[in-house]
């Protein structure tokens, strides 16, 4: 039986995520996130812990890297490289769509 809730959410980016928020959303420990930031694979690599606030983009990227590492036993650098390529592919597809050159938005982007 369906339950109806009326909820008003937070728009991530207007509100940014803390280290703990991001780790929980990815089902990893905060250390996993910290190691990848310090290696320059995630976020902007800022060494100032107090400044660590995460955006929608960071959330998508961290989840993708986490899955790639787990599914393929990939080293973090390889997962980050695959994530870079997927992001680049999405940027290009988005521009091609905007230019009216492709309309396959149904497929994975």
């Amino acid at each position: 039986m369906a339950q109806q809730h009326t909820v008003s959410g937070e728009l991530i980016d207007e509100v940014t995520l803390t280290l703990e928020d991001l780790a929980r959303a990815c089902s990893v420990k905060p250390d996993w996130i910290i190691e990848r930031i310090e290696s320059g694979l995630l976020a902007d690599g800022s060494p100032y812990v107090a400044n660590w606030r995460f955006t929608s983009h960071d959330l998508t990227r961290a989840r993708r890297m986490c899955q790639l590492e787990r599914d393929f036993e990939a080293v973090p650098e390889l997962a980050a490289l695959a994530a870079d390529l997927i992001e680049e592919n999405q940027r290009l597809k988005s521009r091609l769509r905007a230019a009216g050159l492709i309309d396959d938005a149904d497929g994975p982007s």
Partner: peptide, 20 residues
């Protein structure tokens, strides 16, 4: 799971809404 969600003005594709 049926939810009535407030979509904020100015949202972009790829952004997230967090429902606590």
């Amino acid at each position: 799971h049926t939810l009535s969600v407030q979509i904020p003005k100015g949202i972009k594709a790829g952004q997230h809404i967090r429902l606590i």
